[in-house]
């Protein structure tokens, strides 16, 4: 693995499902090139993909910031959107405000946030109603 730090940024458009998954795909390729453990890669991209889909499904637009060093990956998803009034409730399996369009895409069952939690070493969500939501996912690489 290289000793350099890597940084990537990806814009995300709300409502545009046709592009959802591209950032997660790029991150997966990068982590593979760095020879990160396969299980950690899967956990990371599953959490990132659900988080990305949440911006597409629930927010207006956002940016994903990726920082990778030799020990960990830090993913920040910053969106402009309606925000989450009750994060604890939103984390519950089955809670969803998703539209029928989102359900047609294979999401919107209220499983995303808990799945993100299960696949992150550290998950931090902050949100301001009417402004937007910040999600931070940190996963550590086994040494």
């Amino acid at each position: 693995m290289t000793t350099e730090k890597m940084h990537f940024e990806y814009p995300v458009e709300g409502g545009n499902f046709s592009k959802a998954g591209y950032p997660s795909s790029q991150v997966k390729k990068t982590l593979k090139q760095l020879n990160v453990d396969g299980n950690v890669i899967k956990r990371t991209v599953v959490a990132l993909y659900e988080a990305e889909v949440n911006i597409v499904a629930h927010a207006y637009k956002g940016v994903i910031f990726i920082d990778i060093d030799t020990k960990k990956i830090i993913i920040k998803l910053v969106d402009e959107g309606p925000g989450i009034p009750d994060i604890k409730k939103a984390m519950e399996i089955g809670y969803s405000t998703a539209t029928p369009e989102v359900r047609e895409m294979g999401f919107g069952a209220g499983m995303g946030l808990s799945n993100m939690n299960n696949n992150s070493d550290k998950l931090t969500i902050t949100s301001e109603v009417g402004k937007g939501t910040n999600v931070e996912i940190i996963n550590y690489f086994p040494s």
Binding site: G21, S24, S25, V45, G106
Partner: peptide, 22 residues
Amino acid sequence: DNLLLLTGLVNLQAIRTAEMSD
């Protein structure tokens, strides 16, 4: 890993989901 996915959801998200799930 190496799961066979059977689905009636025929869109790009099915492919992306498979990609992320190995």
